[in-house]
């Protein structure tokens, strides 16, 4: 049976030496990040180059994603949230393209590595803290003190609020990472059943249609998950940014 973990391995394409004892190399992960960036640029910049009043197919998709992200920000963080439109749009497109490209067989999924999702989640987390304090000063910490709570349970509530705030980057990053990882492992396991059963002659081949059908269904599900997780990652980013913009509960 094929190793379902093999697809997550990172190997060097070009080694660039080391910094502080860490190997630095252009890896397959970096290659797929480059593909993601080029793909997004081709869609958003290339397809809109004609600036057609009546958009073509690709320009329609570019406009659709633009307006989708813009609407998401405005509905969760209000008009002021549009300050972060480039940031959220970049995160959404990056995660979406990484997820969707990763579904294609024999490709590498950038977002199936915890270090990538954690870096993105921490970027959002730090942006929220830095912007929240810059914009609201100490009032930002009012985020942890809900109104209308009796004074004797306030310390407990504040403790819970702080804890939930600190755990945000963990849930934010693990959700995306685990979804991508589990989905790809499941696909690989069921796909390897097909070849395994196919080796047992005619009866095996007939039996292999079941995992084949399952793989087709899982593929559709994984496509949905790829979109959904990119959307969830982006909308959580918006909700967290909203806390930085409007810290009052």
């Amino acid at each position: 049976m094929a190793d379902p973990i093999h697809q997550f391995e990172i190997h060097n394409i070009v080694s660039l030496g080391s910094i502080g004892g860490h190997d630095i190399a252009f890896t397959n992960s970096a290659l797929y990040m480059a593909i993601v960036v080029v793909g997004i640029a081709a869609l958003l910049v290339g397809a809109s180059s004609s600036r057609a009043l009546v958009p073509g197919r690709m320009q329609s998709i570019a406009e659709l994603s633009y307006e989708f992200v813009a609407d998401t920000i405005q509905s969760t963080a209000g008009k002021e949230g549009m300050k972060f439109f480039p940031f959220v749009f970049t995160i959404f497109m990056f995660v979406l393209f990484a997820n969707v490209i990763g579904i294609i067989p024999y490709t590498f999924t950038v977002t199936s590595h915890i270090i990538i999702t954690a870096a993105l989640a921490l970027l959002v987390f730090l942006t929220v803290i830095v912007y929240g304090i810059y914009k609201n000063g100490l009032r930002f910490f009012g985020l942890f003190v809900p109104h209308g709570i009796p004074i004797y349970i306030l310390p407990l509530i504040v403790f819970i609020e702080v804890l939930s705030f600190l755990s945000r980057p963990i849930s934010h990053s693990v959700r995306l990472f685990a979804n991508m990882l589990a989905g790809h492992i499941t696909l690989k396991v069921f796909a390897s059943f097909i070849t395994l059963l196919g080796g047992f002659g005619i009866a095996g081949m007939a039996g292999a249609t079941l995992p084949l059908a399952l793989v087709v269904a899982l593929f559709a599900l994984e496509l949905l998950v790829a979109f959904l997780q990119a959307y969830v990652f982006a909308i959580l980013t918006c909700i967290y940014l909203n806390d930085a913009i409007h810290p009052g509960h």
Partner: peptide
Amino acid sequence: ASQLIWLAVFFIALYVII
């Protein structure tokens, strides 16, 4: 280390493009 460096490079590049 490699992943973080390339993520930084490509994410910033993508941010600038967008």
